[in-house]
Simulated scan of single mutants.
Amino acid sequence: MTDSGIRPRPGGRSARVRRAVLDATLDLFHAFGMNGLTVADVSARAGVHETTIYRRWGTRENLMIDALLEEAEELLPVPDTGSVRDDLIAYLTSLVAYLSTPHGNDFDRALAAAGDDPAASQARKQYWNTRYARSGQIITRAIDRGELPDTTNPRHAVDMLVAPLHFKVVLTREPLDPGLPARLVDTILHGLIAPLPRNDHQDAGPL
């Protein structure tokens, strides 16, 4: 009770409606993919009128992206340990764990199989741009700490790290090895070719 004697409603009706709609959206997305998700089905499952959904989200694509981004924020947090290697390994480990679940598999394959109509393309672009902006913070912080050169492109670095995981899930259907995150991170940070060891005569020129 508050001092006025009125019991506050945690979140209120608006929060409960949003939660019900987003949960229904995720359930349907994971069951039927992007192309099979309709606002009418979300409305029926959530027990919320369609006009309420359209008034709040505007389009089916906006609703779907809001739901997927919220799920990603919960399941794929962006760590800040103070070490770029530790941050990247922790992030990729979370991604491996997610993509190894039925929902994670469904998510990757549904986005890959979605059509190329303007609405679907824009939804896909919006989702990935937002996720890149979040995960790219790991690279940006590493640049600020001097761990990486200031010429490093955060999105390019994230691309090279996460692409092998999505490739295995969508194309080769291989299981994701728990040790893969550390191997990918070390490959990207150190490169495929290790620098040659120096010796006393390396810069001496011809004898």
Rank of each mutant, 00 (worst) to 15 (best):
T51L: 02
G36N: 04
I89Q: 10
E70R: 14
D106P: 05
V78H: 05
T187S: 10
L37R: 04
L192A: 09
R145H: 15
V21N: 07
I139K: 09
Q122M: 12
L37Y: 03
T81Y: 04
L189S: 06
P8S: 13
R60T: 03
G146T: 09
L75K: 13
M1C: 14
Q126I: 01
V39Y: 03
T52V: 11
L63D: 02
R60E: 03
E174D: 13
R145F: 13
R9L: 15
L92F: 07
T81L: 05
V39L: 15
G104Y: 12
D23G: 11
D86M: 02
A113R: 14
E70P: 02
I65G: 02
V185K: 02
P8C: 13
L37I: 04
P206R: 03
A194Y: 00
V78P: 04
Y98I: 02
H166T: 08
V21G: 06
I65C: 08
D203Y: 08
Y98D: 11
R85K: 06
L88A: 15
A46G: 03
L37T: 13
R13H: 12
N62Q: 11
D186H: 03
E61A: 12
L99H: 14
N105M: 10
G5D: 14
T140H: 09
L22P: 08
V169P: 01
D203L: 12
L192Y: 02
L171R: 07
S121Q: 12
G115I: 09
T151D: 14
H103E: 15
G36M: 04
T51G: 01
D116F: 12
L69T: 08
R55A: 15
F107R: 14
D203E: 09
R18D: 14
R131E: 15
V42Y: 03
A133C: 09
V39H: 05
L111A: 06
D144H: 13
T101A: 11
L176I: 03
T151E: 12
G47P: 05
